[in-house]
Design a protein around this nucleic acid. Structure first.
Lengths: 152, 152
DNA sequence: TTGCTAATGCAAATCATTCTCAATAAGAAG
DNA sequence: CTTCTTATTGAGAATGATTTGCATTAGCAA
């Protein structure tokens, strides 16, 4: 317990930052969640383990983690942000306009788009967000079948 | 002037909405702008022609136009929204993290991604937002050349 | 022209996010 | 293990964007 515990601390030290229990907690909650949490949901989850953690700290930590590349911010709905721990490679999102479900996917085609744009415009591409929207299979069936609305 | 004037009105009527001078003005400002205006900039522009138009009306109209498919909303920077009149086909954005410049581009590869995802997941894709970020040619040169910072 | 009701302007209200500041605690140094 | 420096925290006020309530105005169908 005295050795593996310091991996994350080293990452923070390398970034010239301090590893606090709050930061560790916030990152853990994000990593253990399958969802794309927003700041408030994240705060709620974190409060289970540390009832005193403040929303301001959540936002501040999110900014730090984002800067360190450990977390990504997404604008999925129309309003506020959602956050996600960076696991493997980049991936993209599809949101169902009917039920709100989010499907994650990946595709090499985006790398091609980056390549294409880099050559055409001379830019250096660092980040890519792709957000598709439409209707999932279930919601299509629902609309086609009957006009009964049993979904909010 | 008594005939072409009603094109837009018909579009509104078909949507069960009223065409007001304010709505016409807001759409005109958006259509005549090359930029991706935010609500406040749009309000400023609109006030030139109608000093009494309110910011609330700008937001309300933007929502209506978006719903009618005449306008698109983008999250380009990190904070508030920018709006753009829908002209032709879909197109995508690159934002320079150095100077904030926005480059618009199009690519058939996104259509491929849609196709791919539709087949794989059975979804029906309606909208697509692709937002790349990085550094434009000038900002790369600036960073490489000297450390002189002449840019905010 | 009339009447119904959507749309407007204004100001107050919300919502998400950031900031201020005194108190606390991480981590480097001794 | 104690000390010191200063980044980080919690609480709440502040900010900025967007929305809403309400009384008034004005589209547009009849």
């Amino acid at each position: 317990m005295s050795e593996s515990n310091d991996r994350l601390r080293d990452v923070f030290r390398a970034a010239g930052r301090r590893l606090t229990p709050q930061r560790r907690l916030i990152l853990e909650v994000l990593e253990e969640s399958d969802e794309h949490l927003d700041a408030e949901a994240l705060h709620d989850q974190a409060k289970i383990h540390d009832p005193d953690i403040s929303l301001a700290t959540v936002y501040r930590t999110l900014a730090v983690l984002k800067e360190m590349g450990l977390v990504e911010e997404h604008h999925l709905g129309e309003d506020h942000s959602h956050y996600e721990a960076v696991r493997d490679g980049p991936h993209y999102h599809f949101t169902c306009l009917g039920c709100g479900k989010v499907i994650e996917f990946d595709t090499p085609l985006i790398a091609q788009v980056k390549q294409e744009l880099s050559e055409r415009e001379g830019v250096r591409v660092i980040g890519a967000h792709l957000h598709l929207s439409g209707y999932c299979a279930q919601c299509q069936a629902k609309k086609a079948g009957g006009q009964g609305s049993n979904e909010e």
